[in-house]
Design a protein around this nucleic acid. Structure first.
Length: 508
RNA sequence: GGGCCGCUGGCGCAAUGGCAGCGCAUCGGACUUUUAAUCCGCGGGUUCUGGGUUCGAGUCCCAGGCGGCCCA
């Protein structure tokens, strides 16, 4: 009605967004008109009889041209509106379904028909009527009454092409989820994966626990932490970089089988595979060692694949893999030896390892120890080739400060990492439970930190005290849940499996 | 941190250095079985920001911002 009043200066000086502003003010005006007509544009609730997929399940096999007496009420967002003279067809979308509304002027009357015509794409709508199919067989609700449930004031992205700009997709995930079914599906897979883990672990008698996010020591992994401050205690604290040390305290306490699915924080760069906050699942099992934990890892992931995808056959970077095939287990030093043609062992002279690492493209730093050099060699020569699920075992002691020594080789640990698609997916070991040896390992970490390694750890005195009370033989596991979600949903950026990934500050 | 690429109406995309255009959406009109409805018509831009070169810059140059990919 009053669209042409806006050629005054206030709109022009608003700066650059006049199209959007015009659309928004038009829709706000509709809200105001409703209110002055005594209608509520934002009602408090709506009772629906069926979700849209319920409706399709119940009536999906009706023949074309069927009219039923079945009264239903449905709700969703108007995604498409097609006006056709004295008929309007609208596609309503809810969490996991779509349905067509069939609105006839003859049925709803002139006034309601005009109101329906005034709906905008993106509006939330509730509708009551009977179930029918059109001549072409489209399942529809023949609308008798409808109500605006909430007004969309901002226009939807392109109804066909959706939203493709990744920056906008991640910053405005709400808009992404409205129009991109793939995004919805990915987070559905993520949910199924996590609930599958919880079911499997419950069957295995694990107890889910929650341990602190605010830590006094940032231990359990090699990573730089986020630092924060507690005002009342006037104390520096760290956001956790791992779940490990608190969960093992619970093993000391006799809880025997515990796990936690929780957010950890690492103050590092962003990449398609790294987000500063991500989700780990860690579990600890008394009386077990690393080989048993590898079995648990296989079971968890196979069942998650079945629960998410209905199959254990997954595509990994173009290679079709059946996760029920046995997952090979190889020592890291054997894989590196095979790849380089040189026998490898942490007892070798450092200079030989450094030379070899340099030969394979690393730039060894003076403080690198034998374990670090072997790890670099592994990354350079082996890692990428491990497409099918493969357990890499026997990591050197000096890069595994919380893992127990290999019972057959004191230079190595009873540790494993699971690689899938050339990426580390899980990490576990027979847990080190000798408090004196743990103290020595911590002290080595501490001195590495003091000589400039920002990722090295510190001596966690409380953890050592816990170990002195006695920790039973224990196997532990950590799984990167985001990376597993990537694998199961077939996406290649961690940002596709994190609803609100970390981004640089947006300028408004 | 380095290299390459991108940024144009709300969204998706065009434009040998020479009038900034198309599709969707919006707005007006027609249409009682459409379904990316169709048909007719009208609007809407500080081309990411700031400098520079040029008669003339979305385009070329410099700096910055945000993003993507690769590398470290």
């Amino acid at each position: 009605m009053s669209e042409h009043i806006e050629n005054d200066d206030s709109e022009a000086s608003d700066g650059g967004h006049s199209v959007l502003e015009a659309e928004r003010s038009k829709r706000y005006a509709k809200i105001d008109e409703m209110r002055s007509a005594g209608l509520e544009p934002y009602p408090y609730r709506f009772d629906r009889s069926h979700t849209l997929s319920d409706l399709r399940a119940a009536f999906g096999d009706l023949e074309a041209g069927t009219e039923t007496e079945q009264q239903v009420s449905v709700a969703g967002r108007a995604m498409l509106i097609r006006e056709q003279g004295k008929l309007i067809f609208a596609t309503l979308k809810d969490r996991d379904g779509e349905i067509q509304l069939f609105v006839s002027k003859a049925i709803v009357g002139d006034e309601a028909f005009a109101e329906f015509g005034a709906l905008d794409l993106g509006d939330w709508v509730g509708a009551e009527g009977t179930v029918m199919t059109t001549r072409k067989g489209e399942l529809s609700v023949k609308v008798e009454r409808f109500v605006l449930l909430s007004k969309a004031v901002r226009p939807m992205p392109d109804k066909w092409k959706g939203l493709t700009d990744v920056d906008t997709r991640f910053r405005q995930r709400y808009a992404d989820l409205i129009v991109n079914d793939e995004a919805r599906r990915t987070f559905r897979v993520r949910h199924e994966m996590i609930s599958s883990f919880r079911r499997t672990l419950a069957e295995m008698s694990f107890i889910e626990v929650e341990t602190p996010v605010l830590h006094v020591e940032a231990g359990g992994a090699h990573a730089r932490p986020f630092i924060t401050h507690h005002n009342a205690l006037d104390m520096q604290m760290y956001l956790r970089i791992a779940l490990e040390l608190h969960l093992k305290r619970l093993i000391v306490g006799g809880m025997e089988r515990v796990y936690e699915i929780g957010r950890v924080f690492r103050n590092e760069g962003l990449s398609p595979r790294h987000n500063p906050e991500f989700t780990m699942m860690e579990l600890y099992q008394a009386y077990g060692d690393y080989s048993e934990v590898m079995n648990i890892t296989e079971e968890l992931i196979r069942r998650a694949a079945t629960d998410c995808l209905g199959t254990t056959v997954v595509d990994i970077n173009g290679t079709e893999c059946d996760l029920t095939d046995p997952w090979p287990r190889h020592r890291m030093i054997d894989l590196v030896a095979r790849a380089t043609g040189v026998d490898i062992h942490p007892s070798m002279p450092l200079v030989k390892l450094a030379a070899l690492a340099e030969e394979h493209g690393s730039k060894p730093e003076p403080h690198w120890n034998a374990g670090k050099l072997i790890d670099e060699l592994f990354a350079a020569t082996v890692e990428q080739s491990l497409v099918r699920p493969t357990f890499v075992t026997g990591h050197p002691v000096d890069i595994s400060p919380l893992a127990r020594r290999d019972r057959n080789d004191p230079y190595l640990t009873e540790r494993f990492e699971l690689f899938v698609g050339g990426r580390e997916l899980a990490n576990g070991y027979s847990e080190l439970n000798d408090p004196r040896e743990q103290r020595m390992r911590f002290e080595e970490e501490q001195s590495a930190k003091e000589s400039g390694n920002l990722e090295a750890g510190t001596v966690d005195e409380d953890y050592l005290r816990a170990l002195e009370y006695g920790m039973p033989p224990t196997g532990g596991l950590g799984i990167g849940m985001d990376r597993l979600a990537m694998l199961l949903s077939g996406v290649h950026s961690i940002r596709e499996v994190i609803l609100f990934p970390t981004l640089r500050l947006e300028q408004f």
